[in-house]
Amino acid sequence: MLAIRDIHKRFGHTVAVDGLTLEVRAGEVFGLLGPNGAGKSTTIAITTGLLAPDSGTVDLFGLGSPTNPAVRMHLGLAPQEITLYDQLTARENLVFLARLSRVAAPRHRADELLELVELDARANDRVATFSGGMKRRLNLAAALVHDPKLVLLDEPTAGVDPQSRNRILDLVRQLAAAGKTIVYTTHYMEEAAKMCDRVGIVDHGRMLDAGTVSELIARHGGKSSVTIEREGTEHRVRTDDPVAEVARHFASGGVTAVRVERPDLETVFLALTGRSLRE
């Protein structure tokens, strides 16, 4: 579906992408997880053809490079920034983009999408009057006007309120259920863990590892941590089997509190990069 091979991109002295390789399968939700500045957005820009890599290749659907307009037809991008016309209404924005993409019935398609993102009631309002969350949803709808097979979502929930975030995540689920292939960049681990079939950990422009969350944890998460409190003292143990460990301590008596910490993507990221995702 999407094959990125050994791409490099440098801006002056700054290396943005450093030999990144990635394969996304048809129908999956693939998460690109990494801190700000890791090279996620540059990778997305190269994937869409907006940026040319210094070296390496991008192939979409076996059709070749996305710099070809015919190939770009099959991908939709919801960029991190809101790329809408503030002084046009929600409908006008979508109708315009649908016309650009040669959609047969632009108005009908716009109305369908407005309903999908629950903005049909505000269809004739200018985008300038929308809240951040509404703009995000419309930004997502704009990526879907031409019904692309591959949807690239660059930090789709950045800076939105929890309610809008949930709506956006629901939308992503709907798209996934409709068979779209989704590449999803985020620096929210919970989101990646919850939404993505597979996750790739990116840092300093490199793909450190990719796999399902369980696979990544199994490979890099290490042992679970079990903390036992007994009469004011605390005892911490690292184990592969936290349940057995807790049972063993309870059997010996005197336990006042137990805390189990299982490895997660944060642990994986820490293990892979030596720093926290939120640093």
Binding site: P69, P79, T83, L84, L100, S101
Partner: peptide
């Protein structure tokens, strides 16, 4: 500056 030019560039037009 607002990124809408990228939106236009992504459209299947030359």
């Amino acid at each position: 500056s607002r990124g809408t030019l990228n939106r236009l560039r992504l459209a299947p037009i030359g």
